[in-house]
Design a binder for these strands. Structure first.
Lengths: 231, 231
DNA sequence: TTGTTCTCTGAACGCCGTGTAGAAAATGAA
DNA sequence: TTCATTTTCTACACGGCGTTCAGAGAACAA
C-alpha cells in the first residue's frame, strides 16, 4: 500500500466521518457534498475523486451504519447463553431499539428514505449488512423452532420457492432443520421488532405516550411467549 | 362564498392535485413548488398566495393523504359486523396494507421523512388524521378488551399519566371501560400492523420473499389470536 | 528528467425554496 | 362608470444543491 493509497483511504474515511457527523447534527438531508467539502476545506468537485456520485457515498454510509447496528445486536445476543433462546431474542430486540434511539438518523438512513432521490442499488454494502441482520434473526428463530413448531397452526403452507434463492441457500446450509415456514416466521419477528421502533423513531408515538420503552418490552415479551419461549 | 373565494379554492385544490400527481410519479421529493407551477403555467412565487411555505403545502397534503387512508380503513372495518371484533381488526389491517401498496408514496409521506427538511407542526391536519386512526384502533381494541383481559399477564402496570392527556380524555369518554393498559395494547397493535407494512413499502422484503401478503396475513391472524379473538 | 496518473480548483449548468417589487386583474363602494 | 383596495401573479435576485469539465499542480514510476 503506497503512500498515495494511504492518503486516499484517509481522505475517504474523513469524507465518511464528516458525512456521519453532518447527519447526526442535521439529519440525513444535511449530507451534501458541498457541506462536506466546506468542512474539509475543499471544493465539492474534489469528492468525485473518491465517490462517483452522491448516491455512492450514501450507499457506503448505509453499509457502515447498518453494520454498526448489527454489530451491536449480535454483541447483545451473544452476551446471553444459547440455552436461553428467549433471552437472546429479547437482547437482540432491546439492543436494536437502543441503537435506534442513540442513532435515530442512522435508523432513518437504513429503513427510511435516506436522502432525497436516493434509490438503493442491488447488492450494495447495505444489502450485505441487511443479510447479516436477517441471518441473525433466522438463527434466533431457528433456535426457537422446536418450541414454535409445537404451537403453530393455521399458517399458510410455505415453500422454499416463495423466498429468495440466495437466502434459502444460506438458511438450508446453516439451519438444515428449519423448514420454509421458519423464514416466514423470521420475517414476522423482524416486522414485529420493527413496527414500534419505526413509529417511535419517526415521532408517531411521542405525542401519545411519554415513554414507549415499556410498551416495546411488553410487545417483545409477548413475541417471545408467542414463539413458545420464556424469558 | 364569493367568486373570488371559489376561484381561490379551485386553484388551491389544483395545486394539491398536481402535487399528489408529482408525488405519485416521482416520489415525495418530486414535490417542488417550481414543478407544480410549471405544470400550472405559473411561476413558483404565485403559490405563496395559497400556501405560506412549501412545508405548509406538505402539511396539508399529509392531512389529505392520511385522511384517505383512514377513510379506507374505517370503511373496511364497518363492512364487518360489530359482532366479529377479530374480523374487524383483520379488515382494518388488510385495508391499510392495500392502501399502502396502492399509495406507497403516500405511505412514505405519512410515516417516513416526507420531504427534505420537513418537520411536522403540532396539531396540524396530519395530527388530526392520526388521531382518527388512533381512535379507530382504540375502538378495535376496546371491542376486544374482555377477551384480551382474560389472557393478559406479565405486562407492566400502566397509568393514565403515562399517556397524552388529550388521548386519555377521548378514550375515557368513548370507552369508559377501557383501562390504561388498553391504550398500551392499542399502540402494540398499531406497531404490529405497521412493522411488516413499513418493511415492505420501503423495499426490505422485496429481495427476500416474492409475496409478503401471506406473511402479513399470518401475522395479523396471530395478532387477533393473541388478543383472544377468532376470525 | 520525463511522462503519466491522481487530486483538486474554479467556473459553469440547471435544479431548488424563498423573498421582494411591482404589474395586472378582480372586487366593492361612490 | 369610476376609483381605490385587495388579491394574484410575474420578474428577478439570493443562496443552496449535485454534477460536469478544463486545466493547474502534485505525486509517482521509468
Amino acid at each position: 500500500m503506497s503512500r498515495r493509497d494511504r492518503l486516499r483511504a484517509q481522505t475517504s474515511a474523513e469524507i465518511k466521518a464528516i458525512a456521519l457527523k453532518l447527519m447526526a447534527d442535521g439529519g440525513p438531508d444535511a449530507i451534501s457534498l458541498r457541506a462536506i467539502a466546506r468542512e474539509m476545506g475543499m471544493t465539492a468537485g474534489a469528492i468525485y475523486s473518491y465517490f462517483a456520485t452522491r448516491d455512492d457515498l450514501i450507499t457506503t454510509l448505509i453499509g457502515d451504519v447498518y453494520t454498526s447496528a448489527v454489530d451491536a445486536a449480535e454483541a447483545a445476543r451473544d452476551a446471553v447463553p444459547e440455552t436461553e433462546p428467549g433471552g437472546r431474542i429479547l437482547a437482540w430486540a432491546q439492543a436494536m431499539r437502543e441503537w435506534a434511539l442513540a442513532n435515530p438518523e442512522g435508523f432513518r438512513l437504513i429503513y427510511g428514505d435516506p436522502v432525497p432521490g436516493y434509490r438503493p442499488p442491488d447488492g450494495g454494502p447495505g444489502s450485505q449488512a441487511e443479510a447479516r441482520a436477517c441471518a441473525g434473526l433466522v438463527g434466533l428463530v431457528a433456535a426457537a423452532w422446536p418450541a414454535v413448531q409445537a404451537r403453530r397452526s393455521g399458517d399458510r403452507a410455505y415453500d422454499w420457492a416463495d423466498f429468495d434463492p440466495d437466502l434459502v441457500a444460506h438458511v438450508r446450509e446453516d439451519f438444515p432443520d428449519l423448514p420454509p415456514a421458519g423464514i416466514a416466521m423470521t420475517l414476522r419477528v423482524w416486522g414485529r421488532m420493527h413496527g414500534l421502533m419505526a413509529l417511535e423513531i419517526y415521532g408517531h408515538l411521542r405525542t401519545l405516550i411519554h415513554d414507549p420503552a415499556d410498551v416495546y418490552r411488553d410487545e417483545m415479551h409477548d413475541l417471545i411467549a408467542s414463539l413458545g419461549l420464556t424469558t
